[in-house]
Simulated scan of single mutants.
Amino acid sequence: MQNLPVDLGGYKLMVTEAPEMKTRVDRETGQVVPSMGYDSDEPQYVVVLFAKAREANANGRRSKGEEIKVTLPRDPGDGFEEGALVELSGATVSPYEIKDGGQITMSGLSFKARTIVPLGG
């Protein structure tokens, strides 16, 4: 299952690494090139956020939080410096696995969002 809608409204999201262009290594040339979206000619961007629950759980404690990388379909513009509080629009999550010789060597969750919006303040 891919691109499952996710509601992060119950989390405070803080920028820990400002958005930057997503890149990859071209297998033929070995050069670092922009990573383009499947349905666009624009390069994708990645922003790193710290997500922490806004409210305590049933035990009265708040989780320690988690750092997540979020892929954006285009340059989000200015206003997303380290420490900025933001919200995501159109957020989705997809599980992934990387295999080497049939053996799973890495797995996790991949986050994407349509847009990122700075919170006022």
Score class of each variant (00 low, 15 high):
Leu49Gly: 01
Asp39Phe: 11
Ser63Phe: 12
Arg27Cys: 05
Glu97Gln: 14
Val46Met: 07
Ser63Asn: 15
Ala51Gln: 09
Val70Ser: 05
Ile98Gln: 11
Gly37Arg: 00
Glu67Thr: 09
Lys52Met: 12
Val33Gln: 12
Asn59Lys: 15
Pro73His: 08
Ser40Thr: 15
Glu66Val: 08
Gly65Cys: 01
Pro34Ile: 04
Gly90Cys: 07
Gln31Ile: 00
Leu72Tyr: 01
Val48Ser: 15
Ser89Arg: 14
Phe50His: 14
Thr71Gly: 03
Gly79Gln: 07
Glu82Phe: 13
Asp41Glu: 15
Ser63Gln: 13
Arg24Gly: 05
Gln103Gly: 00
Ser89Glu: 15
Thr23Asn: 13
Lys99His: 08
Arg62Val: 15
Tyr96Trp: 12
Pro95Cys: 02
Arg61Asp: 15
Ser94Gly: 05
Asp78Lys: 10
Leu72Gln: 00
Phe50Thr: 10
Ser94Met: 01
Ile98Asp: 12
Gly65Ala: 04
Pro95Lys: 05
Tyr45Ala: 02
Ile98Gly: 08
Glu67Phe: 07
Gly101His: 04
Thr71Glu: 08
Phe80Ile: 03
Glu55Ala: 13
Lys64Cys: 09
Arg62Tyr: 11
Gln103Ile: 05
Asn57Trp: 04
Gly101Ala: 04
Arg54Lys: 15
Ala51Ile: 04
Glu55Tyr: 14
Leu85Cys: 05
Gln103Ala: 05
Ile68Asp: 04
Gly37Val: 00
Arg61Ala: 13
Gly83Lys: 11
Ala51Pro: 06
